[in-house]
Nucleic acid binder design. Structure first.
Length: 277
DNA sequence: CCCCAGGGTAGGG
DNA sequence: CCCTACCATGGG
């Protein structure tokens, strides 16, 4: 993976087949990126505006230094993950092999853990366009302005201070109190986020499930997308279809260590199939 | 009017 | 353990 600077931009040479930004940023793991024109993406992460374009053979980070890439974006976009090895392992399975053929360019982002937690609290019994809208309004009201029309994701303190009342006009429905309670727990230390990256997965799950509004699905999504626990395996309505249709005897145990990655290929694949693409 | 959305909780068998 | 009603909100 060759990396070099061109003017003020940073270029990462990687074929689209190995890293597909479009499917990665629009596969339901993150909610703050837009694709204003094909191959061009804009969004906010870690309090910064990102402007990225992708061609067949390279990804270009606009106005980005090598230092910034190495310290923030390389990890966020998981450029160092060994997806070739994981895909080769998964390919023994027929369904996964098909899914990789259609969605093999997806990577698991390592997003901010608090942002991920809040985002997936909002996601419960909700649809993706509405989730995005609620998050955008949340950032506008309680985030920090970065540039015209762009806001950072709110801190735990900002959401805790807002409380349920301050969140009531964001279209969150009954989820407003879940957000307020979760942020409160993070600020007062009852929920320690950093330890969830290293705790045994069973203990990490248990800690998250103590929070009101976090059930199995929200916990798994947070662990996978916000704590980079690749063994986490979210099962939503789409994945239930996959499991019923292709894995009636259960998901193969040989894939458990990186089941979350497999899950993401399958999730994207079934959505492509059932929406007729 | 219905149903559904990357579900969770509380309550009752 | 299971099952079910209910929870706001908006789009189809």
């Amino acid at each position: 993976m060759n990396i070099y600077s061109e003017n003020k931009d940073l270029i990462i040479e990687i074929p689209r087949s190995e890293y597909d930004l479009s499917s990665t940023l629009d596969c339901g793991q993150c909610f703050r990126f837009k694709e204003p024109e094909p191959g061009s993406f804009r969004g906010v992460a870690h309090g910064r505006i990102l402007d990225i374009t992708q061609t067949e053979e390279a990804i270009r980070f606009k106005d980005t230094t090598a230092d910034e890439f190495n310290s923030i974006w390389c990890e966020y976009f998981d450029f160092n993950g060994d997806y070739a090895a994981m895909k080769s392992h998964f390919s023994k399975d027929e369904t996964l092999s098909l899914a990789i053929g259609r969605a093999g360019g997806i990577r698991i982002l390592k997003q901010d853990s608090f942002e991920t937690l809040i985002s997936f609290l909002i996601s419960q019994n909700n649809n993706i366009p509405r989730i995005k809208g609620s998050i955008e309004r949340l950032c506008q009201k309680y985030g920090t302005p970065i540039a015209e029309g762009f806001y950072s994701f709110p801190t735990p303190e900002a959401i805790a201070r807002a409380g349920q009342e301050g969140l009531s006009d964001l279209g969150l429905g009954y989820r407003d109190r879940y957000l307020a309670d979760c942020a409160q727990r993070v600020t007062d230390g009852r929920l320690e986020l950093t330890e969830l990256c290293s705790l045994p997965i069973a203990d990490a799950r248990k800690k998250l499930l103590e929070v009101t509004g976090i059930g199995i699905k929200v916990a798994e999504c947070s662990l996978l997308f916000g704590f980079h626990r690749l063994e986490a395996f979210p099962v939503d309505t789409w994945m239930k279809k996959v499991l019923e249709r292709y894995y009636p005897n259960g998901f193969p145990e040989e894939f458990t260590k990186t089941a979350g990655v497999a899950q993401q290929y399958l999730f994207h694949y079934i959505r492509l199939l059932d929406t007729g693409k």
